[in-house]
Amino acid sequence: MSVPVTVGVIANPASGRDIRRLTTHASVFPTAEKANMIVRLLAGLGALGVDRVLTLRDKTGVSALLLRAIETHKAVASHQRWPEVEFLALPFSDSVADTHVGVAHMVREGVSLIAVLGGDGTHRAAAAHCGDVPLLTLSTGTNNAFPDLREATVAGLAGALVASRAVPPEIALVRNKRLVVRCVEGPNQGREEIALVDVCVSRQRFVGARAVSEPSDIETLFLTFAAPDGIGLSSIGGAFAPVDRAASHGLHLTFARPGESGVPILAPIAPGRIDQVTMRACERLEAGAWTPLYAEHGTLAFDGEREIELERGDRYEVALDWRGPLTVDVERVLRYSASRQLMREVAAGST
């Protein structure tokens, strides 16, 4: 008896609803569109042989709308094949804890890959627990640099080709860099966090609304990559010294306080918001070397959100490594598939 091809789906119900909707001109990503994206993802996955999808329940209505769509699909006897969808019987709080628990559970269930609908923060949470299970990234948040902004139907087709092993992993998957921050001394000694895009030492002393939105608050910035067409904190690096995702190094930037001299840089740090920062230094961040974080006060932000309030006596350090998550290269998967007409073969084999 063949083992069913199983895919996990994580959809953050809170993504696209943070404070930047109020402070900038960022677009709102409604609950209905998240449910519709999952439906389109199911169509792509089911067309090419994925048998089963595991996903989470939530309080905001994404899972309820998805269930309604599934019931309608069954009632009209559509010719389009969808996977069987199983809502995991896990406690839920509509917080990041749901992603942590859900991804860990999906990995234990042996999913072939996990599709993540969310922003940089959601993908960071998934990356903390996915191990070597690849992520299929879909952007639904704000200031996204890590996940792809892509049609879910197309992503579903590529995900199915990867989950069914029709496309070999060495073609389909990309290993990503990450930043690791650890506390080596002080009240929080032993704490460790990761980031997929950026770690920021902010001059703001409290976590507050989490988002790093004032350029004058930025003390130090570490980046895994910096796209010249990016948005968010990584756009600062992209405006001065772009670094590709595949590059062996990252960036370490430090910034002047108001009134101090330095190099002015204009960057889009939020949708509809272009600000100037004054840079004091920009250095390559080589993989494997631990760099001290010199800050007695303030907060540490990971992938754009303040999370740790620095306490007296805490001493942190940061390093870049290549132990980030595996992600599906959708374009490369579909190009490989087209060159070998794999979709036709996989679809024929799954009927």
Rank of each mutant, 00 (worst) to 15 (best):
R210T: 11
G237Y: 12
V96N: 15
L41D: 01
L67N: 12
V212G: 09
Y316L: 05
T220I: 05
E170S: 12
C200T: 15
S213F: 08
R17T: 14
T122A: 11
E170K: 14
A160D: 05
L22D: 13
N144C: 08
E84N: 04
F92R: 04
V9L: 13
W82A: 01
T60Y: 07
R57V: 03
F240T: 08
R315E: 13
G349R: 06
E109S: 07
E71L: 09
A160E: 03
R205D: 08
I236Q: 13
V133G: 08
F92H: 13
R306V: 01
V263K: 14
S95Y: 11
I265Q: 03
E260P: 03
I194W: 07
S234K: 00
F302Y: 13
I308K: 07
R257H: 04
A289P: 03
P134R: 12
I265S: 04
T224H: 09
G232T: 02
I265C: 05
E260F: 07
P4H: 09
G237F: 12
M343E: 13
A97T: 11
V328S: 06
A152M: 05
G313D: 11
H25G: 10
D217I: 01
A14R: 11
L320Y: 05
V181S: 14
T278P: 07
A287T: 12
A77E: 05
P271I: 00
A64L: 04
A145M: 08
G46W: 02
M279V: 06
P228G: 09
V197Y: 07
R335V: 08
G61C: 08
R344P: 04
V184Q: 12
L293I: 14
K34V: 02
G110N: 07
F87P: 02
G8F: 04
E192I: 10
K59C: 12
V199A: 14
V199P: 04
I38G: 01
P271G: 00
A43H: 07
P325N: 15
I274G: 00
A163E: 00
L253P: 00
M279Q: 10
A126E: 06
E286M: 11
L223I: 03
A26R: 00
G110W: 06
A64V: 01
T122W: 06
W82E: 00
H105T: 15
P169K: 07
G259E: 11
T140S: 14
V28G: 10
W322P: 00
L253D: 07
R315S: 10
L223A: 08
A256N: 13
K177C: 11
A75M: 08
V318T: 06
H25V: 06
Y316S: 03
A241T: 06
D303F: 07
A163M: 01
V318K: 03
V207T: 09
G288E: 13
L113M: 06
H129C: 12
W322K: 10
F222S: 07
L326G: 10
I236L: 13
L251V: 00
T31V: 12
L149S: 14
T140A: 09
E345Q: 15
T220P: 03
Q204R: 07
V263L: 15
A115C: 05
N36L: 06
V207N: 12
M279L: 14
E311D: 15
N12L: 12
R344E: 15
W290C: 08
R280V: 10
V167R: 04
R165S: 12
R210Q: 14
L48K: 02
T299H: 09
P268S: 10
